[in-house]
Design a protein around this nucleic acid. Structure first.
Lengths: 130, 130
DNA sequence: CTAGTTGCAAAGAGTTTGCATGGCG
DNA sequence: CGCCATGCAAACTCTTTGCAACTAG
């Protein structure tokens, strides 16, 4: 049994609370620390982000430049939810679309690959920036 | 006029040659340096990769962990070429598939977003790892 | 010869880790 | 109380930059 129990601490609550208050927005650790958006030590913040991501409460994205961004994850179960990220303005668009589910099925059937839409971001150029 | 002319140097030729010889494979700067795959100084390698990417001769990808990977760019025009990356074994699968072209058209038409397949990686689990 | 290029080493940026102290249960 | 979590600072990793020597044109 490798049952480890975790404490519910003020700091992790603060982090989760912050993201919950800014649902829909993305933040990277660097900014959260530099702008002191969450009153928590840097190391603790990194540890909290990693754990909350593991727990599925936050969603982690890798941005085009390679930086890690986090966002509050409201819809755990949605598997037809892809993200579109504009390379020009940086907008993150949530694409809830039934047809994309078919795409996943196609890839699974014809390419033997199970896509995790939650971890995949499609990069391109949005309407406004074109 | 800010016309800067560039020299054709042995080092940059070596880098491009290496990628050309390993067309279809991806490498990150770190590995190229650590394994001494190209007999060129680290700084020079980084500078060469950046420039060759700017020139369009190499293609740069950001991997899930945030690391930058480069690949020889043979077909500039191919826009139906997506990549599948296995989250377990790390395999990078090249998916040349006409149906994905339709997907891009769908996203463009219905979501007003032009996807750059060369910059987008779909994450998931490959056949072997399932 | 002139200006871009190399390579070393040092500086940076972002993230992780070690360890003593603090706090949840 | 035991054990996990915190926070500081130091360590790390990957990448960029400064600079003197070098080389393509």
């Amino acid at each position: 049994m490798d049952e480890t129990r975790f404490y519910r601490t003020r700091q992790r609550e603060l982090v989760l609370q912050f993201f919950s208050d800014h649902s829909g927005e993305c933040f990277c650790a660097k900014d959260l620390i530099a702008q002191k958006l969450i009153p928590v030590g840097a190391a603790t913040l990194y540890r909290a982000l990693a754990r909350l991501n593991d727990e599925g409460k936050l969603k982690k994205y890798i941005e085009a430049s390679g930086g890690a961004y986090y966002q509050y994850n409201e819809s755990e179960a949605c598997h037809c939810h892809f993200h579109l990220k504009c390379l020009r303005c940086g907008a993150l668009i949530h694409m809830d679309c039934a047809q994309m589910k078919e795409v996943q099925e196609h890839i699974a059937a014809d390419h033997d690959f199970v896509v995790d839409s939650g971890k995949s971001i499609l990069y391109g150029v949005c309407k406004k920036c074109r």
